[in-house]
């Protein structure tokens, strides 16, 4: 049945390179999440408070990000923009694709979070003499943050998993690097098995970190 010899030595030899690539994966994912949170917040606010063209654009962004495959979005930033003579580096393609996707998903989470805080609280805060800014930063935002904390963690995990698509646009993050080594040594199974373990560890560390942070942040 097992007419196959496993060779783990080449994998172990390139393990340092894989770990380096894992940090690149993490870097892209974290950057995409930071940009995604800022843009997603903007999209949610635009969709709630503005009308006309800005609202239409924000809604289009959200719906496109949520209703097309992430791989399609990466290809679009890769080949699609190439049609207009805009050739981006693989790093930028993956970062742009992930940011576009994360911002769209997070915008919906933020909108749900804002809607969960009743308007009456703002009015109550204002009638207590708070300025609009105070009411938002002290009453609304802390509650919204609590509601979207868990979805943000999930999105962070998704961002790490999604960055593996970089392999298909020639970006040498963890998956791309694995593909590179695997095709050089033909030890495809061994390499990808180790990579799967690395991804699993990264995801578990993110979830653990998020849980510890939550215990610290939401003590009361």
């Amino acid at each position: 049945m097992f007419d196959y010899n496993f060779h783990w030595r080449p994998v172990m030899k390139s393990l340092p390179d894989l770990i380096d690539a894992a940090f690149l994966t993490l870097q892209v994912a974290v950057l995409a999440m930071i940009l995604g949170i800022v843009i997603g917040l903007g999209l949610a606010l635009v969709r709630m408070h503005l009308r006309g063209l800005p609202r239409w654009l924000a809604s289009s962004w959200v719906e496109l990000a949520r209703n097309t495959p992430a791989l399609f979005q990466l290809f679009f930033f890769g080949f699609g923009l190439g049609a207009f003579g805009l050739h981006l580096s693989p790093y930028i393609i993956v970062l742009a694709g992930l940011t576009f996707n994360c911002a769209g998903y997070l915008a919906e989470n933020f909108r749900g979070g804002f809607q969960a805080v009743p308007d009456t609280q703002i009015r109550a805060a204002r009638s207590l003499g708070m300025t609009a800014w105070q009411a938002y930063s002290r009453i609304v935002i802390p509650q919204v943050f609590r509601i979207v904390y868990h979805p943000i963690t999930n999105q962070m995990v998704w961002a790490v998993l999604m960055s593996s698509l970089g392999m298909l646009v020639g970006f040498r993050e963890l998956s791309g690097e694995t593909q590179f080594f695997a095709s050089r040594t033909f030890r495809i199974f061994e390499y990808f098995a180790v990579t799967a373990v690395i991804y699993y560890v990264i995801v578990k560390l993110i979830l653990l970190g998020s849980r510890l942070l939550a215990a610290r942040l939401f003590r009361y």
Binding site: M162, S164, A193, A196, Y200, V203
Partner: peptide, 23 residues
């Protein structure tokens, strides 16, 4: 949980290359 914590693309490549090993 493993299937939710490893990128789908890695699962696909892994399984596609694992299947011949077990015949």
């Amino acid at each position: 949980d493993v299937f939710r914590s490893v990128p789908l693309i890695i699962q696909l490549v892994l399984f596609y290359n694992f299947a011949p090993i077990v015949g």
